[in-house]
């Protein structure tokens, strides 16, 4: 799989809790191709957020290997890691917790442009307007405080901030779970549009199988720290093999149109 953008092999991670060791990941393997969305789905506590944090190097694994853009991702450190981080961005569930509450929208978007020296200072304001427009907000949002925005608007700014880095992969950890249904639908549309335009790859982490199915090319089902099933979206949803996948499918609420 030399064409893979991201390739994780045998990732293991356990947490120490009250003297006991709790296994969060055991021998997890996954690959993501350029421009592809991998949906990562599972119940609360299955290890999917831990996996997202290990892949983005927010937490180190005990063992295993990650290759990203042809490099040994776990071997990077210091300045080399900071530079490379631009290519893998993350969007979190709670957009309020993901921002400095005192920041303005422009401030939050200027940081990555400055840190990674992507746009010269004179052009930054124009680039910020462009980014806002790209996520469906108008340029006058730039002056607003993060606190003034609604949850959906904040999540758009979080996506704009990730896009500012011109990444090749964005890890979305329950990024639409806290949003209203109509806002959720619009954010999913936006993610798919951005993928088409920029050739972005996503890892879309969620407990909501219907949302995962709507945006993913492939789905990996996690349970108790392991990927128990993985395949093309339609195959997993139409012909689930594992009990975990069948349980997730059964749990999706169905719209009942006809009721006596």
């Amino acid at each position: 799989m030399s064409a893979a953008l991201l390739e994780a092999t045998d990732l293991r991670k356990s947490w120490a809790a009250r003297g006991r060791s709790v296994v969060a990941l055991k021998e997890v393997n996954l690959t993501v191709a350029p421009g592809e969305t991998l949906g990562l789905v599972g119940r609360s506590g299955c290890g999917k957020s831990t996996l997202a944090r290990v892949l983005t190097r927010l937490t180190p694994p005990q063992s295993g290997a990650i290759r990203f853009r042809g490099e040994d991702w776990l071997a990077l450190s210091g300045a080399a890691l900071r530079t490379a981080r631009r290519h893998m961005q993350m969007v979190f569930q709670d957009p309020l917790g993901a921002f400095n509450p005192r920041a303005t929208v422009a401030g939050a978007l200027a940081d990555p442009l400055r840190i990674h020296d992507l746009v010269p200072p004179a052009r930054r304001a124009a680039r910020i307007d462009e980014l806002l427009e790209r996520v469906g907000l108008t340029a006058d949002y730039a002056r607003r405080s993060i606190l003034e925005l609604s949850g959906g608007q904040r999540q758009r700014v979080a996506i704009a901030r990730a896009l500012a880095c011109e990444p090749s992969l964005i890890v979305l950890d329950e990024a639409v779970s806290a949003l209203d249904v109509s806002v959720r639908a619009r954010i999913l549309d936006l993610l798919v549009d951005l993928q088409r335009e920029h050739g972005l790859a996503y890892i879309f982490v969620s407990h909501d199988l219907a949302a995962v199915k709507a945006v993913s090319h492939r789905i990996a089902v996690m349970e108790a720290g392991e990927i128990v099933e993985e395949g093309p979206t339609d195959a997993v949803v139409d012909h689930p093999q594992s009990p975990a996948a069948r349980a997730l499918i059964a749990a999706v609420p169905r719209l009942i149109r006809e009721k006596p």
Binding site: L188, V192, Q195, P253
Partner: peptide, 11 residues
């Protein structure tokens, strides 16, 4: 805006 397993894929 409702999404369930019948919703057509966006990709």
């Amino acid at each position: 805006a409702h999404i369930d397993l019948e919703t057509p894929s966006l990709v």
